[in-house]
Amino acid sequence: MWRDVRAELAKQAYRPASWLLLAIGVVLSATFAHAVPYAGYRGAASGAPGAGRGLAEMLPAQFAGNAIAGTPVFVGALALIFGVLVAGGEYGYATWKTVLVQQPSRATVYTAKLVTVAVGALLLVLALLAVSAAASAVIAALEDQPGGWPSGTAVLRGAGAGWLVTTMWGTLGVLLAVALRSVALPVGLGLVWLLAVQNLLAAIAAPLLDWVAALQKGLPGANAGSLVAALGAPTGTPGVAPLVGAGQAALVVAGYLAGFALLAGWLLRARDLD
């Protein structure tokens, strides 16, 4: 099993697209969680997203919340693409047969893929935390503010929540790749859900229709947004809103993660590999 994990990690580590996704996540986070708000604070970017945020929200005390603020939508989209690549690549390159005739069971390879998605999500969240910490320290230094850092527990909780949310999106990517046995269509459909449908539901349908508002509280994006909001993510960020309590949100996100993983595993086991 661990040799299969090593094989899967190697496949992704040597894949340029994996590092491109990580770099995009870091740049997006640094830009929209720190650079633009700070430019807005300094009066250079009024009207830009997050530009009206106060200085206190950019300082080290808030770095963990800022780091994971993108996970319900933008960073989540990157995690979903990573999940699609991890599982869908085997369909795209027709390598399932190459791997499985070497002996491992489908369940073993699939589990190794889930571990790889979780490791990739953890690396992404840790990178976001590091960049957010560095950016907030720079802003504090520029503004001559005291560098009050959050407690280790708060950072761990933020990291854990960010990891849970990004792993959940990555696992949705795995499910879409296995269900559709490809790469392009799962990425497209996943992004439509994450970037368009979720926002339309939250911004347009939910305020007009009570049943959509109620339904939304059970959807993965809304619960992801509620979870990171409870851990300090700024509520002005797309997808971040305290619709449900942190405990429920964590349970629902974990439930989706488990559900996606089990459904994809069942599909992979049940179907022929052509």
Partner: peptide, 11 residues
Amino acid sequence: RNLAVLADHAG
């Protein structure tokens, strides 16, 4: 590298 990855899968 392809064969190394497959060697891992093959044990």
